[in-house]
Lab assay of single mutants.
Amino acid sequence: LIVDEAINEDNSVVSLSQPKMDELQLFRGDTVLLKGKKRREAVCIVLSDDTCSDEKIRMNRVVRNNLRVRLGDVISIQPCP
């Protein structure tokens, strides 16, 4: 998924579009594992966002710094076991 700027300022939340959440079989409030660069990982709570496009994930600056990614970078997402 492509990293995009978050609207809310919550450090533990990322936003996906509802069709993408359905495709990944995620529900609102699920915890997910995000994988960024240099084997960096972060655990976040996923919320749906109608304004977010299907191929993007919204996260704020703190999460991006933790993953060592910038806007427009590609990250992977998976549900936490």
Rank of each mutant, 00 (worst) to 15 (best):
S48P: 14
P19E: 15
L26V: 11
E55Q: 12
R39S: 13
L24T: 02
R28C: 14
D73I: 02
R64A: 11
K38M: 11
R58A: 06
N66G: 11
I7W: 12
D54N: 09
S76L: 07
S53P: 06
N11Q: 10
S15C: 12
R39W: 08
D10H: 15
S53K: 11
D73G: 05
I45N: 14
V74D: 11
R40T: 15
K56T: 15
C52G: 05
R70Q: 06
D10Y: 08
S17F: 02
G72L: 03
P19S: 14
C52S: 04
L34R: 00
Q18S: 09
T51M: 06
C52L: 13
V63Y: 02
A42S: 15
V32Q: 01
E23H: 05
V43H: 12
R64L: 10
E23F: 04
V62T: 14
E5D: 12
E9N: 15
G72R: 05
T31Y: 06
S76E: 08
L16R: 01
N11M: 10
S48D: 06
V62Q: 12
P19H: 12
M59V: 06
R61K: 15
N8R: 08
S17C: 03
V46A: 13
V62E: 12
S48W: 03
N65S: 13
L1M: 10
I75K: 00
V74N: 14
S17Y: 01
R68E: 14
L16A: 02
R28S: 12
A42E: 07
E5T: 07
V63D: 13
M59A: 04
R28Q: 12
V3R: 00
I45R: 14
K35T: 15
Q78M: 08
F27A: 14
G29S: 07
K56E: 08
R28I: 09
S53G: 11
C80D: 09
S12P: 06
P19W: 11
S17R: 03
R28H: 15
P19K: 04
A6K: 06
S48A: 14
I75W: 00
S15G: 14
P19Y: 15
C80T: 10
D73M: 03
E23Y: 06
L47V: 11
V3A: 04
S48C: 15
I7T: 08
N60Q: 04
A6Y: 03
E41L: 04
A6C: 09
K37V: 09
R68L: 10
I75F: 01
R68P: 00
D30H: 07
V14M: 01
P81D: 14
Q18K: 10
D30W: 04
S53W: 05
R40W: 09
E55W: 06
F27G: 13
D50P: 07
V74L: 07
R58L: 10
I75V: 10
S12N: 08
F27I: 10
D54S: 09
I7P: 09
S48Q: 07
L67V: 03
P19Q: 15
R58Q: 05
M21Q: 01
R61P: 12
I45D: 05
G72P: 00
E5N: 11
R64F: 05
Q78P: 04
R28L: 13
N65T: 09
A6M: 15
G72I: 00
M21L: 14
E5L: 07
I45Q: 04
S17N: 15
P81H: 04
K20Y: 02
L34E: 00
D10K: 12
S17Q: 02
V14N: 01
R61I: 11
L47A: 15
V46D: 01
R39I: 08
G36Q: 02
Q18L: 09
V14T: 01
I45L: 11
L33K: 10
C80V: 09
R28E: 15
E23Q: 07
V69Q: 02
L67I: 09
D22N: 10
K38Y: 08
I2P: 00
Q78H: 11
N11I: 11
L16N: 01
V32R: 00
K37H: 04
D22T: 10
D73Y: 01
S76K: 06
S17L: 01
R61Q: 10
L34C: 15
Q25R: 08
L67N: 01
K38H: 09
V14C: 07
V3K: 02
T51W: 04
L16K: 01
F27V: 14
Q18T: 06
N8V: 08
R39C: 14
Q25N: 14
V63W: 03
L16G: 00
L16W: 00
E55F: 09
D54G: 08
V13G: 09
Q25I: 10
L26T: 02
M21P: 00
L67E: 01
S15I: 12
V13E: 06
G36M: 04
L71T: 15
D22V: 09
A6V: 06
L71F: 05
V14S: 01
K56C: 13
R28A: 15
V32G: 02
D49G: 05
N66T: 13
V43F: 12
V69S: 04
S15P: 02
L67K: 00
S76V: 13
T31P: 05
N66D: 14
P79N: 11
Q18Y: 04
C44D: 02
V74K: 13
S53V: 11
I57P: 00
D50C: 09
I45K: 12
E9Y: 06
K35C: 14
R61L: 12
S12A: 14
S12I: 06
D4H: 10
A6T: 14
V32C: 13
Q18D: 04
A42C: 15
T51D: 13
I75S: 02
V69K: 02
C52T: 11
S15R: 12
E5A: 08
S12G: 13
K56A: 13
V32A: 05
V46K: 02
R70E: 15
A42Y: 10
R61A: 14
V14R: 01
N11Y: 08
D10M: 09
R40F: 12
V63A: 14
N60W: 00
S53M: 08
T31K: 15
P81I: 05
C52Y: 03
L71K: 11
E41Q: 08
V3I: 10
D10N: 04
R40P: 07
C44H: 03
T51N: 15
R61V: 12
G29L: 05
S12Q: 15
C52K: 03
K20D: 03
D4G: 08
V69G: 01
A6I: 12
D50M: 13
S76T: 06
S48M: 09
L26W: 03
E9S: 14
E9I: 07
D30K: 04
K37P: 07
C52H: 03
V43I: 10
I75G: 00
S15D: 02
D30T: 09
S53R: 10
T31N: 11
I2V: 09
E9Q: 06
R64Q: 07
R28N: 15
V3F: 01
C44S: 10
I7M: 14
D73L: 00
S76P: 02
D4P: 00
N8M: 08
L67T: 02
R28G: 11
S12C: 09
V32W: 00
M21T: 01
N8K: 12
S76Q: 14
P79T: 07
S48R: 11
N66V: 07
P79Y: 05
R64V: 03
C52A: 04
V69M: 10
V13D: 07
N8L: 11
V13A: 07
D50R: 09
N8F: 08
K35G: 08
L16Q: 02
G29E: 05
R64C: 05
K37A: 05
T51F: 06
Q18H: 14
E9W: 08
F27E: 15
R68A: 13
L33Y: 15
R68K: 15
I77W: 01
K35H: 01
N65L: 08
I7A: 11
D22H: 08
V32H: 01
L67Y: 00
L24I: 03
G29H: 14
F27S: 15
D30E: 15
A42R: 13
E55I: 15
D10V: 06
T31W: 06
S53E: 12
P19N: 04
C80I: 14
V46S: 02
L1F: 15
S12R: 10
C80Y: 07
S15M: 09
I45W: 05
I45G: 09
D49F: 00
S15E: 13
G36K: 03
N8W: 06
V74P: 13
S12T: 15
L26K: 02
C44V: 11
E9V: 06
K37L: 11
N60D: 08
R58F: 05
L1T: 03
N65W: 06
M59F: 03
E9H: 07
